[in-house]
């Protein structure tokens, strides 16, 4: 948190290195969240672009009441919601851009991982957005349920419920896919 404050302070002085540091630290997490919510890496890159340009433009007036990570994730979530509201969003499969990484896996594991990721990403798109947000923000964003509750403006119990119901639905969907 203190490192966040230091970076923000430097950013307010117009320090580009601070902005670069923030971008490099959070870009992949934010892109993964946006892509998982939108099911579209190209649209997710647009969201990432808008979030960082807007963040830099408002640097002088920035007053953080939460961690920098939570702030940026909230910005991504808000932009994703805007896209769904405006219906300007068309899904493109996640693995089209070939950017999905999976750590150190051998080719066979990689193939299994790719298949599982593909099925999971497809299934995620079939559950309500608020449940998808709870799952993605918790698992990919590393946010606590309390932090997600602040992003979603609902009590923590509601977030936990959305997370649980969302996972149940995903399992049902995926079990159905496997039986086909």
């Amino acid at each position: 948190m203190l490192e966040d404050k230091r970076l923000i302070w430097e950013l307010k002085q117009g320090n580009k290195d601070a902005l670069r540091q923030i971008y490099m630290e959070y870009k992949d997490t934010l892109l993964t969240i946006a892509a998982s919510l939108l099911h579209d890496t190209y649209a997710a890159e647009d969201v990432l672009h808008d979030v960082f340009v807007s963040f830099a433009a408002s640097a002088g007036k920035l007053e953080l009441r939460v961690s920098l990570k939570s702030y940026l994730i909230s910005s991504v979530v808000n932009r994703v919601r805007d896209r769904f509201r405006k219906k300007k969003h068309h899904t493109v499969e996640l693995d089209k851009a070939g950017q999905i990484s999976s750590g150190s896996k051998n080719p066979e594991q990689l193939a299994v991982f790719a298949e599982q990721s593909h099925l999971s990403a497809d299934a995620l798109l079939k559950i309500p957005l608020e449940q998808r947000e709870a799952i993605i923000l918790h698992l990919n964003g590393g946010m606590t349920f309390k932090e997600i509750a602040e992003v979603q403006h609902v009590p923590m119990n509601t977030v936990q419920g959305r997370y649980r119901y969302g996972l149940d639905k995903l399992r049902t969907i995926l079990n159905g896919e496997m039986k086909k």
Binding site: D28, T32, L94, V112, Q116, S117, S120, N140, N175, M178
Partner: peptide
């Protein structure tokens, strides 16, 4: 393995990186 068996792990493992030109 059925992805439904370990859905949290599968989602958590998902990691997308930006392209250099995007950066």
């Amino acid at each position: 393995m059925n992805p439904a068996d370990n859905i949290e792990h599968t989602i958590e493992q998902l990691h997308i990186t930006t392209r250099p030109e995007t950066d």
